[in-house]
Amino acid sequence: MDAGGNGEKKYTLHISPGKAELNYFKDLWRYRELFLFLAWRDVLVRYKQTIIGVLWSVLRPLITMIIFTVVFSKLANLPSNGVPYGIMVFAGILPWQFFSNSLSDSGNSLIGNSHLISKVYFPRIIIPTSSVIVSLIDFLIAFIIMLAIMILWYSFVPPMSIVLIIPFLALAFLASLGLGFFVSALTVKYRDFRYIVPFIVQFGLYVSPVGFMSSIVPEKWRLLYSLNPVVGVIDGFRWAILGASQPLWWPGVAVSFAVSSILFLLGFKYFRSTEKDFADVI
């Protein structure tokens, strides 16, 4: 491949069909600073109107939490194993929101940055990844403020095990990235895909155990239910935050983890196989 016998070994870049894919990881490393800059830009823009930005990321889960608590606890009388229903919803709504925001933001991210994609080169995967990172930061801010509200409102003392949310957050991150890669690449190719994403997100809210405990799902369906990676994440969050009252069903976590990993790998692979054409079709 390399210049054959012409003796021309001294070059810094070789452009050839398929070559970009060969140096993929090298390039990712080379463009790491741009990645940080783009993520920083997205966060900055998001929180530019500081008060509104922060308020919004808290208000949305707070209101949803109140509504879910009223509907599922007071009207439907669903169990919460003795812990305040509101806290249980809180532990489910935030990871869900992280996941759903990641999905909708990364879905639109490539189209939103089309001017960059058609004018400069960089590994395109930076863009959806950066949107997932923004959602993660959103999550962290909302989580801290919501936790404070829970502590004040329910006199709730979080146990030490709360640090165990980290691996589950990582699991959510993995799943979000995987789906984000898929959705963003598909949206470039098929423009009407962006109408499908809000539907998936809305549908997902009801099939994920956001407003109720996943233990109310009959035993024989639970493994199937865990195919939804969010199930493992939310269960893990509840277990870490609420402790013994929310026993963790490990086979479910294992399935969720496996599904997330597969999603991530397939999403990454699909993105890589399509990204070289983005500039031509966007």
Partner: peptide
């Protein structure tokens, strides 16, 4: 490098 060539080579120094 915004778009890939279909064939051929470019060496850049």
């Amino acid at each position: 490098r915004i778009t890939e060539p279909t064939k051929g080579d470019i060496w850049i120094n």
